[in-house]
Design a binder for these strands. Structure first.
Lengths: 171, 171
DNA sequence: TTCATTAGTTGCAATATGCAACTAAATGTG
DNA sequence: CACATTTAGTTGCATATTGCAACTAATGAA
């Protein structure tokens, strides 16, 4: 599909999805987090069509999420490794995994994440204040950030008014 | 595309993407978190084709991420509201937003999330141990969970061996 | 040198999406 | 209560994306 509308939307989710939102891309990244780095291995583990895989890997490299590096010094073959930009998606991927674990795998998670050094389980990813207080979705408000366009400001302002109308009086 | 291979994969990400991984779905959910709940409003804000929107909303409702509720007592018109399953995607969405903010909006985030009651900024979503210690992607290991199939166990075992071969000696 | 493996590319068939016009019911208005 | 308008979709067709399988070219191992 054509998402030519997305890249100029003033929204980080839309912009992020422009890079990693296509079918397969997230699964390719999951594989990368699992340690897969060769074309054939991605193809084999995911069962993805080879042309699609090639296209997705190219796009991820072009955008700096993955990098192509020689397998060893001087080799012509290369492998795909996560960049720091790519590794920085780990919280997102784990949050999504935990959601799937909670709601789609009541018999228990297929995979557990632990700290390698200690064996400690990781906690559920949560939204917190900078002081560490955990927040519920409904405790949040959205306000324009430094990169907000006038349109975004307008939108968020209307949002705030709508919220006040609904909840402002009854509190 | 047909992802008939995904739903039987023993992987929460694949299973989650089966529900919410299609183009537009995440943006529809973002809108829902912004407070949008009517068909026409989703359509107008996103510029999505009406038939696709109808299909996505139906799927999200069928799977319990959204629910259709009457606009008011006894009304025949309805609106789409996040269920608790849907609200539980907030950490994932915010993690993705923050990733986009960091890597695609160096001029600053379009939107800031704050705690409504206090105005406090929220922290970057991070992976932590249950004790609250923050972890890097590379500190993690994956082990089979209670819902792991034999295939998953085998896969994770090979992963562990590969890791030891690479890093085990040099530590 | 020879052969298997790896990493793709190409062409075509099957699917999914975008667009715009159409439908039908619910609601607001006089 | 009748009528116009808004809302929430559906339908059909053109376009774009994906899947599949066969093909190619280069590497690397024996």
């Amino acid at each position: 599909m054509k998402h030519n509308k997305l890249d100029d939307l003033n929204c980080s989710i839309a912009n992020a999805l422009d890079l990693i939102g296509e079918w397969w891309t997230i699964l390719i990244l999951r594989e990368a987090f699992f340690g897969t780095c060769r074309f054939e291995d991605f193809q084999h583990h995911l069962g993805i069509a080879r042309n699609i895989l090639a296209a997705r890997l190219r796009k991820l490299c072009d955008n700096g999420v993955l990098k192509r590096v020689p397998i060893k010094e001087g080799a012509k073959r290369h492998e795909y490794k996560l960049t720091s930009m790519g590794r920085d998606l780990y919280p997102t991927l784990i949050a999504l995994t935990q959601w799937g674990d909670r709601w789609l795998h009541e018999e228990g998670a297929p995979v557990r994440f632990i700290e390698r050094a200690t064996g400690d389980d990781i906690a559920d990813v949560a939204i917190r204040t900078k002081q560490g207080r955990e927040l519920d979705a409904r405790d949040l408000a959205l306000i324009p950030g430094p990169g907000a366009t006038d349109e975004t400001r307008e939108r968020l302002h209307l949002l705030q008014l709508a919220w006040e109308k609904h909840n402002g009086g009854s509190r």
